[in-house]
C-alpha cells in the first residue's frame, strides 16, 4: 500500500479501480439478494467490496497527493460541498423516517450511499467551474 501512495497512479487506474469496486458491489448485491448462501458466507460476501475499495482509496489518495495546489483546492471545495449535502440527506431521511413510513426498498443504506459520490461530483463540477 505504501508503494501505491509513493507512486501516483494515472487517472485511468483510479477509474478502473472504481469500476472494479462498483462491479464487485453489484455482484455482491445480486448474490445477497438472490443467492442461497449460509449466514456466515453472507457476511463474508457482504464485506467483499472492501477489497477493491481499499485499492480505490489508496489510488485516490495517491492521486490527490500528486496533484498541484489548485487541483487540491478544487478537491477540498468539492468535499466542502459534498459533506454538508451528505449530512443534510441523512438528517432529512432520519426525520422523514419519523414523519412517514419510508420503504427500505427505496431508502435503505444500499440505496442512499450512492448519493454520496453524486454529491462529490456535483461539488467537483461547481469547484472546477470556479477556476475555469
Amino acid at each position: 500500500m505504501k508503494a501505491i501512495l509513493r507512486n501516483p497512479p494515472g487517472p485511468w487506474t483510479v477509474i478502473f479501480t472504481a469500476l472494479t469496486w462498483v462491479l464487485v458491489y453489484l455482484l455482491t448485491r445480486r448474490l445477497l439478494e438472490n443467492g442461497q448462501l449460509l449466514q456466515g458466507w453472507r457476511i463474508v460476501v457482504a464485506l467483499a467490496p472492501m477489497v477493491p475499495f481499499t485499492f480505490f482509496l489508496a489510488f485516490m489518495l495517491a492521486g490527490i497527493r500528486s496533484m498541484d495546489e489548485l487541483q487540491r483546492r478544487i478537491q477540498l471545495e468539492a468535499l466542502a460541498i459534498a459533506f454538508p449535502l451528505a449530512i443534510l440527506l441523512f438528517m432529512l431521511l432520519g426525520l422523514l423516517e419519523l414523519a412517514i413510513p419510508l420503504s427500505p426498498q427505496d431508502w435503505s443504506y444500499r440505496h442512499t450511499w450512492s448519493y454520496l459520490p453524486l454529491f462529490y461530483f456535483i461539488g467537483l463540477a461547481i469547484a472546477s467551474r470556479r477556476y475555469q
Binding site: 496533484m67 498541484d68 495546489e69 489548485l70 487541483q71 483546492r73 470556479r130 477556476y131 475555469q132
Partner: peptide
Amino acid sequence: LDVSRQTVNAIETEKYDPS
C-alpha cells in the same frame, strides 16, 4: 512549473493566487 494547465490559466485570469 510542474503544475496543470488549469492552474496556469487560473493564475493568469486572476481567479487563483498561487502559494
